[in-house]
Design a protein around this nucleic acid. Structure first.
Lengths: 242, 242
DNA sequence: ACACAAACGAGAGCACTGCTCTTGCCTTTG
DNA sequence: CAAAGGCAAGAGCAGTGCTCTCGTTTGTGT
């Protein structure tokens, strides 16, 4: 057999064995780190492959061995950003293990907000206008779902106990609610899943408005405002506070 | 006096009198129109001054007589987009004059959604990542407030009648709520204004998720889903359905 | 009415970008 | 050990935003 390790016929860097392959993933990580640093300073629009290469002391053309195009570099950064945000949400959830579902919901929401404020350009990359070709690459889908997964987990646990009220839904939304529940969380009531999807989007509306400056001269005490808004979302999805 | 018409010493195009000034605003409009056309096709990232000039049959350098930089052109487009969205919201509100406040709220929300889906790149320009220097120019503030103004008008009218329930707010949010109410709508209860600001952000979270494809393979019957979400927002801000 | 100044359009040019192609080195592998 | 292929570098192309200069046109104050 031609490729000894179980990797399909990638043209470059098959496997992680060997010094060369190791160097490759290390260089890839270095490039991403430098790109992320420039992203944090200038924003996605001004991220320049040549500037990254210059800072790394290599020829710009050499960079194309690792990322076929600038958009592919951006896509890699997008996936990393989703991962970082997902990790932050999961860490916040774990750190609040002792609290009830409603409190944990708020904690996770606040973690999303804090992460977004700490990484505004990365947040813009994933929840602002999609900069590359306007259609999100399929690779980003699983990474994007991690925050939602955390929220679903909270609802699932509340559903097993008694801390979950079932929202009301009009008849015309019933079929869609059943479809969504079957796809997302078959063990939860369709009404809960529907409300959760809406709250999910609304959460990022709140965070986005703050990160992008839409609350400038409108909301001043933003932590308090957000905390209450997250509580309202929790209530709206059916979580009850003790 | 040196400048006859009451305009301060702008270096270019003082006043609207004269054939030259008229030609100037016409050329300005033509440039913006062509830029908007390219924006709709390619998105803000790929909007090119040279391409606009090429399409208009003029030298690229001539374009700088009308817009000092590419970012200034984008800023003009941003203001126009805010204006267009605000106009759509106002038109929807007027067309629903006969309905009650809660119904009108939903109608306005749906108008925002429809406008955003019809002008995705312009929506991305104003509510996605702020492409130019990351701080929104002050000129955009009044234009941005128009949608919020429509929603406030609905709440104001409901408040005069009996169609507005007062949301509940924790004590720690009281001062901020009073401050917001004083700034935004002193004639409305602080609780209402606070809930309205949150709903405002949440509305654009819902719209943004749909426009930017975050609902891909999650929500299918999006009009119905959104209508119900808008109803929930109305309920959450205190509007009661008949 | 005329002259002056401002506004204008066009062209050349600079520094920068993403990306491709070719050339030579060097590690890995059969 | 030799062939193959990953790798880095350089040159080069087409495109970009933006500046500067140069005639020309147009409006206006004396």
């Amino acid at each position: 057999m031609s490729t000894a390790d179980g990797v399909r016929g990638d043209r470059t860097a098959r496997g992680t064995r060997g010094a060369r392959a190791r160097a490759r993933i290390e260089v890839t990580a270095t490039i991403k780190a430098e790109a992320r640093a420039q992203l944090a300073v200038e924003g996605a629009a001004k991220l320049s492959l040549r500037a990254v290469a210059r800072e790394l002391g290599m020829a710009s053309s050499a960079l194309y061995r690792y990322f076929p195009s600038r958009d592919d570099l951006l896509t890699a950064l997008i996936i990393d950003a989703y991962d970082s945000l997902g990790g932050a949400a999961e860490a916040a959830h774990d750190s609040a293990a002792g609290l009830g579902p409603a409190r944990r919901w708020t904690v996770v929401c606040e973690a999303v907000r804090v992460w977004a404020l700490a990484h505004p350009h990365e947040y813009a990359l994933i929840y602002g206008s999609p900069v590359p070709g306007y259609t999100a690459p399929q690779d980003t889908v699983p990474a994007a779902a991690r925050v939602a997964e955390v929220l679903i987990g909270i609802l699932r646990e509340a559903h097993r106990g008694t801390g979950l009220a079932k929202p009301v839904i009009p008849a015309e939304l019933r079929p869609e609610a059943r479809r969504m529940a079957a796809d997302i969380a078959p063990d939860l009531p369709p009404e809960t899943v529907t409300a959760m999807v809406a709250c999910w989007a609304e959460l990022f509306g709140l965070v986005g408005f703050e990160v992008f400056g839409q609350f400038h001269r409108v909301v001043e005490d933003r932590p308090t405002f957000f905390r209450h808004a997250a509580d309202r979302l929790a209530h709206s999805v059916g979580l009850v506070f003790p």
